[in-house]
Amino acid sequence: MFYIYCPHCCEHREEEEFHAAGQAHIPRPLDPDACTDKEWGEYMYFRKNPRGIHHELWVHSAGCRKFFNITRDTQTYEIKEVYKIGEKPSVVANAVEVQNSHTQNSSKTPLENTLESQSGATL
């Protein structure tokens, strides 16, 4: 049972007031129709499962109904920080990883470039 600080209510609340909504910083591609099936599949289905620092999207569903982000250590369950949508995490496992969460190859497609420029802007 986590004890989660809601950045909007500005206090800790019990986990049962929240829903987890998956990995954070997965922006919807700006032009889905331009995505290949593979790219769309990456966006849709491929998620990290790190041992250690992880960024997650949560919603204070029984409280203020706001979504926000959590940086959590998946090993110790420590919540390292919470931050609002649109903000960037200050605790990161590897700074490059968050920036390029979708880019696995060194040669970037136009989509990947848009993703990168968008990354962190809204999600």
Binding site: A21, P27, R28, L57, V59, R65, K66, F67, I85, T122, L123
Partner: peptide, 8 residues
């Protein structure tokens, strides 16, 4: 809400 709050 998730689309409004996180995407648009």
């Amino acid at each position: 809400e998730i689309y409004h709050q996180t995407e648009w």
